[in-house]
């Protein structure tokens, strides 16, 4: 039996070169949307023909935090909420690398919320992929800052009494230069968005609405992850450039998706160099990273 299994698994999936196959199968539940999002990032990297030696991925804690462990890239699985500041340090040390933060909604926006808004404000050149499944999944389905009002969670058994964050609005108003939202079903558009985000100099943010069948769907009696995908199919409204005040997500409401923000703004390192140039003139050598020996 096991020999046969081995043989079947050894077939070469096209993404195998960018995944740590020695760690697959992953820990995510059946019908979880995370694997699909990983495929979108992998396809984006492949289509951009980036040198994958020069891409680093940083994750925090939670189901999404495990992404770093499955991507065959220089990858860092940090502490809860702290992927972004870790990535800030990494990016400043090595601005030649593409730094991608792959994190969940609770990790990035609740415990890591302060880091998120400040890094957006500084316009540090990195790409944030936020997988929003509306719940803390790894810990067993507790309420998140993205859980829609009235939705149930393990810690809001009578329905959530809090208004959720509108993530695209939060990112844009904090200073992000690229903001998009897609669902795990819009996998081609998501791939395009991730490609654009990676190429964009500055703080780019892609929210991915993804199904959590084991917790969010089960607790709220929404069926399986497949039912959530069908829901996204029927209820997503593509509206590029939408007024971000209108993209709130209510419980089982329409989900506005699209590319919302795509602007130009000097990055943190651009501003750092410009400021020091003003102060020191030709004595200042523009910062390019590393130990200053470059």
């Amino acid at each position: 039996m096991s020999a046969k299994v081995e043989e079947q698994v050894r077939e070469e999936h096209p993404l195998e070169k960018i995944l740590r196959m020695d760690r697959i199968p992953h820990i995510w539940c059946p019908t979880c949307g995370l694997g699909t999002t990983v495929t979108a990032l992998s396809s984006a990297l492949e289509q951009l023909q980036l040198d994958t030696n020069k891409v680093a991925v940083v994750s925090g804690i939670g189901c999404t935090g495990r992404v770093a462990g499955y991507m065959k890239l220089d990858s860092f699985h940090t502490t809860h909420g702290r992927a972004v500041p870790f990535a800030v340090g990494l990016h400043i040390a090595r601005p030649d690398l593409k730094t991608i933060v792959f994190s969940g909604d609770g990790d990035l926006i609740s415990i890591g919320g302060n880091h998120f808004i400040h890094t957006a404000r500084r316009n540090v050149d990195m790409t944030i992929i936020c997988v929003n499944n509306f719940i803390y999944a790894m810990t067993g389905g507790q309420v998140a800052p993205t859980t829609p009002l009235t939705a149930k969670a393990a810690t809001t058994p009578y329905g959530n009494a809090e208004h959720p964050f509108n993530l695209p609005l939060l990112a844009a108003s904090s200073g992000a230069v690229y903001v998009a939202r897609w669902t795990a079903l819009h996998v081609r558009r998501l791939t395009v968005a991730i490609k654009e985000a990676i190429q964009k100099p500055g703080f780019s943010f892609v929210e991915v609405i993804a199904p959590c069948s084991t917790l969010y769907a089960r607790i709220n009696k929404l069926g399986t992850g497949l039912d959530l995908m069908k829901f996204y199919h029927d209820n997503s409204v593509i509206r590029h450039g939408a007024d971000l005040n209108d993209v709130d997500i209510d419980f089982q409401s329409k989900i506005v998706v699209g590319k919302f923000v795509d602007i130009e703004k000097p990055t943190y390192i651009d501003c750092l160099n410009a400021g020091n140039k003003r102060a020191f003139g030709d004595k200042y050598k523009p910062y390019g990273g590393g130990n200053g020996d470059n």
Partner: peptide, 8 residues
Amino acid sequence: ELLCPDFA
């Protein structure tokens, strides 16, 4: 291939 969450 793109939608499969398990690279299967």
